[in-house]
Amino acid sequence: MVYLTRRASLLALCGGLALPVMALEKPTGPVVLSVAGDIVHRNASDRADFDMAMLVALPQHTLITTSPWHKQPTRFTGPLMRDVLASVGATGGKVRATALNNYQIEIPTEDFDKYSVVLVRLVDGQPMRIRDKGPLLIMYPFDQSSALRTQVHYGRAIWQLRRLDIL
């Protein structure tokens, strides 16, 4: 089935064929992230919900960088944001990210294509508690480009992430 899905995706990209809507597995643990808006794949009526195991099942990426909140180089691990968006078939040009405290920030999806932005679930190999900016945060590779070390990009590195709305 995975082979057929990959082949169908490749055919759709090359030939412009429409893909059937694929079902996204349902979370079996507590939901840690919901993705809604301009998405193709859902596992709830109007959104895609993820538990931590579903995020772990996506390809994992480790980023080592400093940030305004981590002065020493810190190891951040989780799926790339572009992989999270691909898993739900996101089609919009912006993401409105919402934290547990309802803080919101809009992020252009081109950031996720241009940079290896990580949806962090582990910091230095450890899960994050809510009081430590967890359970999820978005982290940019700040040390890879001086263009990322701006207040705009720091503001997009949202912690205690709970929801993504694709616009």
Rank of each mutant, 00 (worst) to 15 (best):
M1Q: 09
R7Y: 13
A8W: 12
A8C: 06
L10A: 15
L11R: 13
L11T: 05
A12R: 08
L13F: 11
G15F: 14
G15L: 15
G16M: 07
G16N: 06
L17C: 10
L17A: 13
V21I: 14
V21A: 14
M22Y: 13
A23I: 00
K26E: 15
K26T: 15
T28R: 03
G29P: 02
G29E: 15
P30G: 15
P30K: 14
V31C: 09
V31W: 07
V35P: 05
D38H: 09
I39P: 02
R42I: 01
R42P: 00
N43L: 01
A44W: 01
S45T: 13
F50A: 00
A53Y: 02
M54Q: 14
L55E: 10
A57I: 06
P59N: 05
H61Q: 14
H61K: 12
I64K: 07
I64N: 04
I64E: 14
T65K: 03
T66I: 06
P68R: 02
H70Y: 14
T74F: 04
F76C: 06
T77V: 05
T77C: 06
G78I: 07
L80W: 06
R82V: 11
D83H: 12
V84R: 01
L85D: 08
V88C: 06
A90C: 13
G93Y: 06
K94A: 12
A97E: 13
A97K: 02
A97H: 08
L100V: 10
Y103T: 08
Q104A: 14
Q104R: 14
I105C: 06
E106W: 03
E106Q: 11
I107A: 04
I107Q: 03
P108F: 08
T109M: 10
E110L: 04
F112S: 06
K114G: 00
Y115D: 13
S116M: 06
S116K: 12
V123T: 14
D124L: 04
G125Q: 08
I130V: 15
I130Y: 01
D132K: 06
L137K: 01
M139A: 12
M139C: 11
M139L: 11
P141I: 01
F142W: 08
S145H: 12
S146F: 01
R149T: 10
Q151F: 00
V152S: 10
A157T: 04
W159G: 09
W159A: 06
Q160Y: 07
Q160M: 13
R162E: 14
R163W: 08
D165P: 00
I166W: 10
I166A: 04
L167G: 13
